[in-house]
């Protein structure tokens, strides 16, 4: 029986003190299975980004339980261990504006994620090249990020996120800066990666054009899960 890769049980998070305190998330319980692409939608201030930051172990929950890839990461306090190493090994990040390092070319942006995990540079570059080929941007391997188109840059960013074969991929508005055609391509890529690598992809998005590409779409409002739908009509890629 397959276990969820992302599991939150009764998670809550607030900011500030006293009367100024804002409850960003309340009693969130959700889980995402391997191979599943889950969308998080909702208006500004609904708690989407806070939820993503909690799963990324950037923010510490106030209550509840957080389990990633079968390991309890937070329950009352952080589990012993290096959170940054956990992110490095188990989580891949895709950002709204790709966040490629401007001083590294495409291949080294991807290779960097591997070298941080102890892979020798030559081997890291070979694997990075394979990944870029897989994402159909191999021809742009030596281009600097400023010379890449929005779609190319986002695919390089996805290659970086996939470099260490993470089980969990977190994406923050990955299609916000792309036109609808490229947005569909990126979503198809994420679906393919989720299927082929048995990874869970958690995507924060406002982009209605891509709602149909999710296996599950969770709607948040005022820090609570309001809706949960299964809109996916796309065929597996």
């Amino acid at each position: 029986m397959r276990a969820p890769l992302v599991e939150l049980v009764g998670v809550a998070k607030g900011f500030g003190e006293g009367e100024a305190r804002v409850q960003a998330l309340s009693d969130i319980t959700l889980s995402a299975m391997p191979g599943e692409v889950v969308g998080l939608r909702g208006p500004s201030g609904s708690g989407k980004s806070t939820l993503l930051n909690l799963v990324a172990c950037i923010l510490e929950p106030d209550a509840g339980l957080l389990r990633l890839a079968g390991e309890t990461v937070w329950q009352g306090r952080w589990a012993p261990g290096d959170l940054r190493a956990l992110r490095r090994e188990k989580i891949g990040f895709i950002f709204q504006f790709h966040n490629l390092l401007p001083f590294l070319d495409a291949i080294d942006n991807v290779a960097l994620a591997l070298t941080l995990n102890g892979v020798p540079l030559a081997e890291a570059r070979r694997r990075a090249r394979d990944l870029l080929d897989y994402l159909q941007v191999g021809k742009r391997a030596s281009a600097m990020p400023a010379k890449l188109s929005g779609g190319e840059a986002q695919r390089v960013a996805i290659a970086r996120a996939l470099a260490n074969h993470p089980r969990i991929i977190l994406a923050d508005e990955p299609t916000a800066a792309l036109d609808s055609e490229r947005a569909q391509v990126v979503m198809d890529l994420l679906r393919r990666v989720a299927r082929e690598q048995s990874a869970t992809v958690l995507v924060v998005t406002h982009d209605e054009k891509i709602f149909s590409r999710f296996d599950r779409l969770i709607g948040l409002r005022d820090g609570r899960i309001e809706t949960e739908t299964r809109p996916s009509t796309a065929e597996d890629v």
């Binding site: 940054r84 190493a85 992110r87 490095r88 990040f93 994620a113 941080l116 995990n117």
Partner: peptide, 16 residues
Amino acid sequence: MREIATLKLIGAPDGS
């Protein structure tokens, strides 16, 4: 700032 935040997010140790 943004590059350093990204490095931290993708797991770069403080030493780097």
